[in-house]
Design a protein around this nucleic acid. Structure first.
Length: 729
DNA sequence: GCAATTTACTTTTTT
DNA sequence: AGTAAATTGC
């Protein structure tokens, strides 16, 4: 291990091992290397690896870091506690489960599972989901949990019309998860905190164990994570957090940027080390990124610089529409690959929303460029996969009612809604799990004999295999169970494209399980379920693969590529706006900044003048972020407009009719994005009868152009623009 | 109780 | 446009 390869700030960050340290690490400043070296340095100075806790943002980051440390210090590295907050504490909770009245085979509910629980509660409590959106309730509950607010204090912290109802749901939600022996993502952070707060012995045990704590991506930790770190580090106070406030992009998930801004206040006598030299990008790229981010008001002062070459200018592409954007980029990639200078995996296409990936996929296929979409519809969230997982969960956790409900009638066993209600009612009365309830139901007369038989068949299936858990090889057990359910057979026989897909997905899951067990025979079914609950798509992605990477800007955090395309730089998309409420533009700007700083050699940002959304073409305006870029480092390119025509359009949409009549004679691209008085989402309009309002949605073309207008009086109207004479204000 | 048809909703970003 | 949920008809 040679510390001389580090610059002086980096070296400080490695050797200041005692006491609280904040490392403000700008993009590309070698933060991963610093963390790696710091851990290796600790160990080479005699610290037991088992006394080090390193928390990363993704499992992938943890794996990579562990690999690098292994290179530096060898096998000792395996004894490190390293992983995401969620995976490290999920493991801890399996050890300590009995102390919080759970079992070590508790289920982990993802957001879908948790939403189903909430819907179930609202259904039981007769709260209509028109009245209260379950997703809203879910986000409120998650929000409260992130802030460590218990149901009893809920109403002191949230102020809206429905809070007392939400509080009731929150209370019941907690109860149900508890009786299901299940935890959601938030619980994985909260439950250890609750344990530590009530059981000082447990806290002391882990304080002693984790003498040195390191946290990566600290800018994206939430309050619960902060509280946890505070508790664990309060003994030795050897806590080192690394982060960059300019790259905080998870506020929507509860991340609290104050954690990093206030670190020096929260942890007294802490040191700050700034890593300001960027080793990743060219001067042009860094200057562009800097010109954007400096528009944000709230930040830690820092000055990122680089010794790297000036490099090529950053290209701003102006495209006709989203299709043109995709083709344009494919062409650029093809040309660059032909020069032999770059291979496919040197390129990344980064977008704001997953929905944007499709159009690039189509274009890449046509261009025969290998690509891989990272993220999107996640494998483990597919219906067929969740069904299989529900079976497995029920085997190890018989209290998991949510999983039971999912599969009790899948494949069809003749158990309908009415029979299920009877089972739920009986189980609730006797305060037993639904699975146990089946036995009770069998001894009652609330359902027909035929239904009883159907239930018992299911019950026997589950019991048969849960008794085999631990006795039979995991792989054999699962294959045999799935075979007996007939799921695979069912999909195979149906034969539609969709069902073949599902069949293959389940096969893939079973193969994944086989690999999991083969690579480590001591692993159990619970381990497998735990792993797949906490794994993300980015964790599975191998950058060794020779393919262009497509992913969201969020997923790209922490990665780097020689050539980066940040696409869809249009107002409303990047920055993304939901309705026209005041959004946090600063966070969107940071997201754009994160995207730009992923590039090592070449950066391309593009926007389309028209974009398809929900199957309709909408005019777009270039992102305000593009106007913030320092022009000295930019070159502009655009698709030739020679065959496209601009329209002179008057203020009123009554003239729109003329335009639509001559539409057939018009070229393919209708460009009204640069016109002055244009109707777009957000435009203020005047209606003779309804008064002033704001356009919320646009659809259709020509005579069929329709708008949803929200009038200031509170009315929301769907209007045909052909008839409604709207004036643009 | 189930299949077929209609409707509603999606596009934030994810552990 | 494409999918999931809800509703209807058998």
């Amino acid at each position: 291990m040679n510390l001389n390869t580090l610059n002086s700030a980096q070296r400080n960050a490695v050797i200041e091992t005692e006491g609280p340290v904040l490392v403000v690490a700008g993009a590309g400043s070698g933060k991963t290397m610093v963390l790696t070296y710091r851990i290796a340095y600790l160990i080479s100075n005699g610290v037991d690896p088992a006394n080090i806790l390193a928390l990363t943002f993704t499992n992938k980051a943890a794996e990579e870091m562990k690999e690098r440390i292994r290179h530096l210090i060898g096998k000792k590295a395996d004894r490190l506690s390293m992983g995401t907050f969620h995976s490290v504490f999920a493991k801890l909770l399996r050890f300590e489960a009995s102390h919080i009245n759970f079992t070590s085979s508790y289920s982990i509910y993802d957001t879908d599972d948790s939403l189903r629980v909430i819907k179930g509660i609202m259904n039981d409590f007769d709260i209509s989901d028109n009245f209260l959106n379950p997703k809203f309730v879910q986000s409120r509950i998650s929000n409260a949990k992130n802030k460590l607010i218990k149901p009893e204090y809920y109403e002191n912290n949230f102020f809206g019309i429905h809070e007392s109802k939400i509080k009731t749901i929150y209370e019941e939600y907690r109860k149900r998860l508890k009786s299901n022996n299940s935890m959601d993502f938030d619980d994985l952070l909260i439950k250890p905190i609750e344990l530590f707060e009530k059981d000082n012995g447990a806290l002391l045990k882990y304080q002693k164990r984790y003498k040195y704590i390191l946290v990566d991506e600290y800018q994206d930790t939430n309050h619960a994570q902060y509280r946890m770190l505070k508790l664990l580090s309060s003994g030795f106070e050897n806590i080192c957090v690394v982060g960059d406030d300019a790259q905080s992009i998870y506020k929507w998930r509860g991340a609290d940027i104050r954690n990093i801004l206030d670190f020096t206040k929260d942890f007294s006598s802490s040191k700050i080390i700034r890593l300001e030299q960027n080793y990743r990008s060219t001067k042009s790229i860094l200057s562009v990124a800097d010109s954007i981010i400096k528009r944000n008001v709230h930040q830690i002062e820092k000055n990122l610089w680089t010794d790297n070459e000036e490099g090529n200018k950053v290209t701003v592409y102006e495209c006709l529409d989203d299709k043109d954007e995709a083709n344009h980029i494919c062409k650029a990639i093809t040309i660059k690959m032909m020069s032999q200078e770059f291979k496919a995996s040197d390129f990344a296409i980064l977008y704001r929303t997953n929905a944007q990936s499709r159009i690039f996929e189509e274009a890449l296929i046509k261009s025969t460029i290998p690509y891989v979409v990272v993220g999107g519809t996640e494998f483990y969230k597919r219906k067929e996969i969740k069904d299989v997982i529900a079976y497995l969960r029920l085997l190890v956790n018989p209290d998991d009612n949510e999983s039971l409900l999912r599969i009790v009638n899948f494949p069809s066993r003749g158990i309908g809604e009415v029979s299920l209600e009877a089972l739920k009612k009986l189980s609730q009365q006797n305060e037993i799990s639904l699975l146990k309830g089946i036995q009770a139901l069998n001894n009652s007369d609330s359902v027909t004999e035929r239904v009883k038989k159907n239930f018992i068949n299911f019950f026997n299936l589950v019991m048969k295999y849960s008794e085999l858990v631990g006795k039979l090889n995991v792989n054999e057990l699962v294959r045999s169970l799935i075979d007996e359910t007939g799921i695979l057979k069912m999909y195979k026989e149906e034969g539609s494209e969709d069902s073949i897909n599902r069949y293959e997905n389940i096969s893939q899951l079973l193969n994944g399980l086989q690999d999991f067990v083969n690579s480590n025979p001591t692993k159990t079914l619970v381990d497998f379920l735990n792993d797949i609950a906490l794994i993300s798509e980015i964790d599975k992605w191998e950058d060794k693969s020779t393919a262009v990477a497509l992913m969201t800007l969020h997923s790209a955090k922490g990665l780097e590529f020689k050539n980066v395309f940040v696409v869809g730089c249009e107002d409303g998309l990047l920055p993304l706006s939901r309705d026209s409420s005041v959004d946090d533009v600063e966070e969107e700007r940071r997201l754009f900044y994160v995207g730009c700083t992923r590039a090592k050699k070449n950066l391309y940002v593009s926007f389309a003048r028209n974009r398809n959304r929900f199957g309709n073409l909408y005019p777009q305006r270039r992102s305000r972020f593009l106007d913030e870029i320092d022009e000295r480092f930019v070159e502009h390119e655009s698709t030739s407009f020679s065959h496209a025509v601009s329209f002179r359009k008057k203020a009123s949409y009554t003239q729109k009719k003329d335009f639509s009549k001559s539409r057939n004679a018009m070229p393919k691209y209708e460009d009204f994005s640069q016109e002055e008085k244009v109707l777009t989402v957000g435009t203020r309009v005047m209606h003779d009868v309804f008064g002033e309002g704001t356009i919320r949605q646009l659809s259709g073309f020509g005579d069929n152009l329709k708008a949803v207008v929200e009038f200031d009086e509170g009315l929301r109207k769907h209007l045909m623009l052909k008839f409604a004479k709207l004036k643009v204000l």
